[in-house]
């Protein structure tokens, strides 16, 4: 056993371990895709194997039952609204707290990140009451504002940490050149923080699109309910077959998966940028 030999065995073991985890990570997804392509009779006959023939009927049926275009639109509006509002608000706070001579800034910063400890589950009824009192129950703005509030603590923390790394001299120089604070924030700092902003945007997109409890309670059974609420309702109907549910699941997860695959590079570099301390 020379060391070179054992190093090679180590390599094989390593690759083997990585492959096993990769299979575990994608198999449930593949299983769902395969199930969604089976007919109901085909699934009953052979639930585990590959389909004898491929059918797209389940997808058409899922679209018919769930009013899919409307659900997709609702999810898109609320997710984008919440994402933009949350990142914008975090951007403004992070600038005020780190780059302005602003007494009380630290307390504001603390107050905002402390709200991280308030999970939506713990306050779900009074939150629902509050949204109701604001007349925003079943309305897009109700869910958008709630998303923005729940995305705020992590966003503020990440951007503040990022701005902290930018030397104050850079800001001073821009001030001397006559740049206003908003110009500095949006023309100077935001471009520098692009990787962090991109990572934050993707992170927010994923959890807002995928969240269940807030839309379930705020949107309820209204026409503005999101895709995830629609999916949860679909799986509760007892006449629904596994292939049909599977098709619904694939439609529900596809948008985020596509976004991730398209923006994968930004996500990686953003994650790298965020941890550079």
């Amino acid at each position: 056993m020379n060391p070179r030999h054992s190093a090679r065995i180590g390599r094989y073991l390593l690759t083997f371990a990585l492959v096993v985890v990769a299979v575990a990570a994608v198999y449930p997804l593949l299983f769902t895709v395969v199930s969604s392509l089976k007919t109901q009779a085909g699934f009953a006959h052979d639930p585990l194997g590959l389909p004898a023939g491929i059918t797209l009927e389940n997808y058409l049926e899922a679209f018919r039952r769930m009013n899919m275009p409307r659900l997709l639109l609702n999810s898109l509006i609320t997710t984008l609204g919440g994402l933009v509002l949350s990142v914008l608000a975090a951007l403004l706070v992070a600038y005020a707290v780190t780059k302005l001579r602003f007494r009380g800034g630290k307390i504001v910063f603390l107050l905002i990140i402390v709200t991280l400890t308030i999970p939506s589950q713990a306050i779900i009824y009074p939150l629902y009451q509050t949204v109701l009192d604001l007349g925003m129950s079943g309305q897009y703005q109700g869910l958008i504002l709630a998303y923005a509030a729940f995305g705020l603590p992590l966003g503020t923390y990440q951007l503040a940490g990022y701005f902290q790394q930018v030397p104050d001299e850079l800001i001073e120089a821009a001030r001397v050149d006559g740049a206003g604070h908003l110009t500095i924030l949006f023309r100077l700092l935001a471009p520098i923080a692009t990787p962090a902003l991109a990572a934050l945007a993707i992170f927010n997109f994923v959890w807002m699109w995928n969240d269940l409890l807030l839309p379930l309670v705020i949107m309820g059974g209204s026409d503005s309910k999101t895709l995830m609420v629609g999916v949860s309702l679909l799986s509760g109907q007892y006449d629904v077959s596994v292939p049909l549910v599977s098709a619904g699941l694939i439609v529900a997860l596809l948008p985020v998966l596509v976004i991730y695959l398209v923006f994968q590079r930004q996500l990686v570099s953003g994650a790298l940028a965020g941890s550079g301390k």
Binding site: V26, N210, D211, L212, V231, L249, A252, L253, L257, Q264
Partner: peptide, 11 residues
């Protein structure tokens, strides 16, 4: 490895 995280928990 990141793919499972992109799938909604309800899904």
């Amino acid at each position: 490895y990141f793919v499972p995280y992109t799938i909604a928990p309800i899904v």
